[in-house]
Design a protein around this nucleic acid. Structure first.
Lengths: 211, 211
DNA sequence: AAAGCGGGTGATTTCTTCATCACCCTTACA
DNA sequence: TGTAAGGGTGATGAAGAAATCACCCGCTTT
């Protein structure tokens, strides 16, 4: 049975070599190349064309994300698994935008790393559990911001009043504006949320975390 | 050792009962309640307070996402694992925004479901492999849209010209505007991207998938 | 010295969005 | 019949963003 051909990219020689030893001990894998920075990685990957690339993020000259972005310009199908210590959102989102097939932390157990590499090789996208949690948080935040950006501040105020069951007249009184102004805001809310009436708007707003 | 206390919420009686049988056969779990719709689920969950809730999405009266949104208003810490057939992005993003701790497809093997429930119970966020891929795609798309929204259409045009190595004069000629206008666009690009010169801007744009 | 190039400051006009309001129609209820 | 409420069309003014342009300076190359 064919071994999965791997290239390891990491600027720390000890870590890289240690990881290579570990992987070579596993009958499923064959390490066919290595690189200490992004520039070198691009050359090695283009020449060897491995099944999977293990790619660190924090590296000199060209970091892992820039490396991946450059790689994707040439090869959209190369499987790349980020293997990094970084849990900060910018790195995580940057790697995803650049097209990473997986994102795994260096605290991962060898056995878990083995399964992860096999999963990526099989075509799946894989994240470390802590990373999954961060990604879900990032999606939640991003989508909530996007939802919130759909409406103006005033429209959100009006929507909250609607959610409390207030009538047009009551809302006008609370916000010190005319009923006609309230109606205009409501019209824009219905248009932007693509609903037909205020009940639907309130239900959708609850779902969009706008209240 | 304590068994994980589970509530199963699904409108299809046969599926729900079958799943309950399956889970009861596993020594790690104890099914302490069940519900056939979201309304009922809210009542059952509040009364029983299980360790983990398995929650379908497509249900009558109150779907799984609305149920979860309502539940989160009362209990931010309840572990909820979506168990659904749906792979569409709106459901997926909706569940995440509503605060799901995990999202698993109904084609999951029983053993994998077991591990997933244990992971969620342990505090981790878990996704099915196919779902992970979709989430990564959604993040990529969302972030690219957000990046794109940072600059106006014209600024993006100018940035693309810069990426081709064109000078201010060349860009002016290509876009039929004056060199001074090109410079103003570039100034705004540098400001918005928080970089110091056009080389940095191009590098960052590549990373942000703006080219 | 002149030309080419990038980076900087400032100004004007146009367009879009936001917030405001008036008026009309329909339905339901007292 | 009158009142209450929601939904619809249209208008105006202010603020901010977008797109445009002029002019100046420093550095490098010819």
């Amino acid at each position: 049975m064919n071994r999965v051909r791997i290239v390891v990219v990491d600027d720390h020689a000890l870590f890289r070599r240690g990881l290579i030893s570990l992987l070579e001990e596993m009958p499923e894998f064959h390490v066919v190349g290595e690189a200490a920075n992004g520039q070198e990685a691009l050359t090695v990957i283009e020449r060897i064309r491995p099944d999977v690339v293990l790619l660190d993020i924090n590296m000199p000259i060209l970091d892992g994300i820039q490396t991946l972005a450059a790689l994707r310009k040439k090869d959209a199908s190369q499987k790349v698994l980020m293997l990094t210590i970084s849990q900060n959102d910018d790195d995580l989102i940057g790697a995803i935008v650049a097209g990473a097939n997986g994102y795994v932390l260096k605290n991962t157990e060898p056995d878990t790393l083995k399964n992860t590499i096999l999963q990526v090789h099989a075509g799946n996208s894989v994240l470390s559990p802590e990373v999954t949690a961060r990604v879900l948080q990032a999606v939640r935040r991003s989508q909530t911001d996007r939802n919130r950006g759909l409406l103006s501040e005033r429209e959100i105020e009006v929507l909250k009043c609607l959610a409390r069951g207030q009538t047009t007249a009551q809302i006008a009184s609370v916000l010190f504006i005319s009923e006609n102004t309230v109606k205009t805001h409501i019209r824009h809310i219905l248009e932007k949320m693509e609903v037909n009436n205020r009940a639907e708007a309130v239900a959708k707003a609850a779902q969009m975390d706008l209240l």
